[in-house]
């Protein structure tokens, strides 16, 4: 009996990296998964095993239940359609993981463009807003609560050099998490986030391959290493499970001690 047995979960950004690992991890705990992403295949520049197979195909090959629904999280109606298809396919929604996120490039604000700001805020802030809004509407229809886990970042709670738009967007997602916990606590809807450190994904490959940045992150992380994708899966399963029924409005740091300093 898995810790998420029979639960129905929607995961955005599920084709690569953290989202892919969460989807597979949830399925291993017995959940039925709707994988959503702007693209169906894993990003080739990532570090995922088995990239030639889509996440839902990996889950099905292991005997789990999963499907893929294409969506751009910056578009409310597209996210609404993902939730609708989850309900049509699996009967209900129990867990929403707002994982889709983007990063453009390292640069201080005086060198940034308006387009970079809009794109970053669109996915990382508005995308989380859309996911929370659509999931909560479905939870309220069902009337028996639900779980939302937002994948934020340490950039949502501290300033990181040359990441102005990313930090602003993640801080927006972090405080939206706390705000929604207050409004929907009385209705049994838990809203929490994890805040990862730098970890090796397609998004951060340019940093990881830059020896200066790679070793700076190692030096600033008490555990002395970058995060790995599997490090994030257990924390998200915990927050999505009934073990965390009394946890809401929490930002769970999964950062090797980065923000403890």
């Amino acid at each position: 009996m898995g810790r998420l047995q029979e639960k129905v979960a929607v995961i955005t950004g599920a084709s690569s990296g953290i989202g892919r690992a969460i989807a597979i991890g949830f399925a291993n705990e017995g959940a039925r998964i709707v994988c959503s992403d702007i693209r169906s295949d894993a990003r080739p520049e990532g570090y995922d095993a088995d990239t030639q197979r889509a996440t839902a195909e990996v889950i099905k090959a292991q005997g789990g239940q999963a499907c893929f629904v294409q969506a751009d999280v910056t578009k409310g109606p597209e996210v609404e359609a993902v939730i609708r298809q989850a309900v049509e396919r699996f009967g209900r929604l129990d867990i929403m993981v707002n994982n889709a996120g983007v990063f453009t490039r390292l640069a201080p604000i005086h060198e940034k463009t308006e387009e970079e700001y809009d794109f970053t805020m669109g996915v990382n802030a508005k995308g989380v807003w859309n996911g929370c809004q659509q999931a909560i509407r479905q939870f309220l229809k069902q009337g028996d609560g639900g779980k939302i886990v937002n994948i934020v970042s340490i950039a949502g709670v501290i300033g990181l050099p040359e990441e102005p738009a990313y930090c602003a967007s993640k801080a927006a997602a972090a405080n939206l998490t706390r705000q929604l916990a207050v409004d929907y606590g009385p209705r049994g809807i838990n809203v929490n986030a994890i805040c990862p450190n730098f970890l090796t994904t397609a998004m951060t490959r340019p940093f990881h391959e830059n020896q200066d940045i790679k070793s700076t992150v190692e030096a600033l992380t008490p555990l002395g290493r970058w995060g790995k994708i599997p490090d994030m899966v257990g924390p998200v399963i915990f927050l999505a499970s009934s073990e965390a029924d009394y946890v809401t409005g929490s930002l769970l740091m999964v950062d090797g001690g980065f923000t403890a300093k």
């Binding site: 790995k228 915990f238 929490s250 769970l252």
Partner: peptide
């Protein structure tokens, strides 16, 4: 206790120096 088990387990091997708040939303306010 569920939160304590999580922190003691291998699921939390990248988690150190953090605060796990289990408060039904009190400090989110």
């Amino acid at each position: 206790a569920y939160g304590v088990v999580y922190l003691a387990s291998k699921e939390a091997t990248f988690v150190t120096g953090t605060e796990l708040i289990i408060d039904g939303g009190v400090t989110a306010q």
